[in-house]
Amino acid sequence: MATRNRKPRQLTDDDIAALPIKKARYSKVDTEQRGLHIRITPNGVKTFFCVARDPNGKQVWHRLGDAVIGIDKARTEARRVLKAIIEGADRGGPQTYKAISDQWFKRHVENKERKLRSGLNIRRYLDKHILPAWGGRDFASIKRSHVAELLDNVEDTAGPVAADLVLSVVRSISNWYATRDDNYVTPVVRGMRRSEPKERARDRILDDDEIRAVWKQAEADGTFGAFVRLALLTAQRKEKVASMKWEDIEENVWHIPSEEREKGNAGDLELPAAAIEVIKAQTKFASNPYVLAGRGSGHLNGFSEGKKTFDEKVRIPHWTIHDLRRTARSLMSRAGVRPDIAERVLGHVQQGVQGIYDRHQYRDEKAHALAALAGLIGAILSPPSDKVLPMRGHR
């Protein structure tokens, strides 16, 4: 008697959940809906795809969504999409996180009227943390648990403040998309922050022993060490110091370019001899315009990596690059510099009537402030004990 061909058992969500993780990506074909596949990657992501040929005979793969949408919904969506592919019609359907984030970045960050000054940092957080984790996933499939998992990873590798910055980008994208989709609910909720703004406010400055330790290591630490010394000697923000160009230096004056929508800028600064000596010690490259040259034609970057290496050689507890700026401001007060002049050196906007009507550039006063700062740093580096090497230019 002939044996009947049995119809394969219908694939279930439990079957999909039990599919093993292998070293190489592979696909499992649905036994119920022709053209429907479940793709399993080595990192455990399981995704529904459907495949068919369009009117030109080209094989088309269409991503339906992560396995969380369920096999029943995937089959229903596959029937619609497969019909559209075969007929050459618009498939519509889910969009990837990268596709949505690209739209948000173009309309929200790069918008000509808005053009956020933080655009470069936003792009960096997207490319470094968010898109590697979610770029190919359905935007609407990202849930609270996925956000929490991402923030855990960022907090573990880059710290709680970085995690909060990633969260702010995710929140902005989600809120933007929610204004364009009637059914979308943002996965970002209260309580997801990994640090409190009040706790992040710092008053940390380096003491004299720490200044000596940092300076000594900075003298032996190449480009990053030069950056550290210039940051302390000029009291400028790290982005300004890192992006200093050779063309910005005229004799001993640093012409600090103003950026679009920038609130405050120190303008022209006459630098002390110690700072000029650090600058002149840097190598000039014909293909790179920056004093602190980075890879290719860019400037020094990767501050967290540079500081991590630096910290392995000099043990100072809980200090940040921004502490150098705060330390320089405090040293100027210690050296007798007037508070309003010190604030102008930092590029802080003056408030009230003085900020509105006083258009004097204070170039000589700022030069005196930086000279006083360098002089005090030199005295700190050359204490009476004679056990610490003096800073060049201050013997």
Rank of each mutant, 00 (worst) to 15 (best):
M1D: 15
P8S: 05
P8M: 06
D14C: 00
D14R: 07
P20I: 08
I21K: 11
I21G: 03
K22N: 10
K23W: 01
R25P: 05
V29W: 03
D30M: 04
D30Q: 05
E32D: 12
R34L: 11
R34N: 11
G35S: 11
I38P: 01
N43K: 12
K46R: 09
K46A: 01
F48I: 14
C50P: 13
R53L: 02
P55G: 10
N56H: 07
G57S: 10
V60A: 07
W61D: 09
H62D: 11
D66E: 13
I71N: 05
A78M: 08
A78T: 07
R80F: 02
R80D: 12
L82K: 08
K83P: 04
E87I: 01
E87P: 00
T96R: 11
T96G: 14
K98F: 09
I100D: 13
S101E: 09
K106F: 10
E110W: 04
K115D: 15
R123W: 11
R123M: 13
R124I: 01
Y125D: 10
D127E: 14
W134E: 05
G135E: 09
G136T: 10
D138L: 02
A140E: 14
S141H: 03
L150P: 04
G159E: 02
P160C: 03
V161G: 09
A163R: 09
V169F: 06
V169L: 05
R180V: 00
D182T: 06
D182F: 00
D182E: 13
V185E: 15
T186I: 02
P187M: 00
P187F: 03
R193P: 01
R194L: 03
R204A: 12
I205Y: 04
D208M: 01
R212N: 02
V214P: 01
Q217S: 07
A218H: 00
G222Q: 03
G225C: 08
G225R: 07
V228A: 06
L230G: 03
L233M: 08
A235N: 12
K240Q: 15
A242D: 07
E247L: 10
D248C: 10
D248W: 06
W254F: 04
I256Y: 08
P257V: 11
E259G: 15
E259F: 01
E260V: 10
E260M: 08
E262V: 07
K263Q: 14
K263S: 12
L269E: 08
L271P: 08
I279K: 10
K280D: 12
Q282L: 07
F285D: 06
S287P: 00
V291C: 13
S297F: 05
S297W: 04
L300I: 13
L300G: 15
K308F: 00
T309D: 04
E312D: 13
E312K: 15
R315E: 12
H318R: 14
W319E: 01
T320C: 04
T320N: 03
A328F: 04
R329A: 15
L331M: 06
L331K: 05
M332F: 05
A335F: 06
A335V: 06
G336C: 00
P339S: 15
I341P: 09
I341D: 09
H348C: 15
G352P: 02
V353G: 02
Q354N: 11
D358A: 03
D364H: 05
K366V: 14
K366L: 09
K366G: 14
L370K: 14
A371W: 01
A374G: 10
G375D: 13
G375P: 02
I377D: 12
A379S: 11
L381T: 05
P383G: 12
V388S: 13
M391H: 12
R395F: 06
R395E: 13
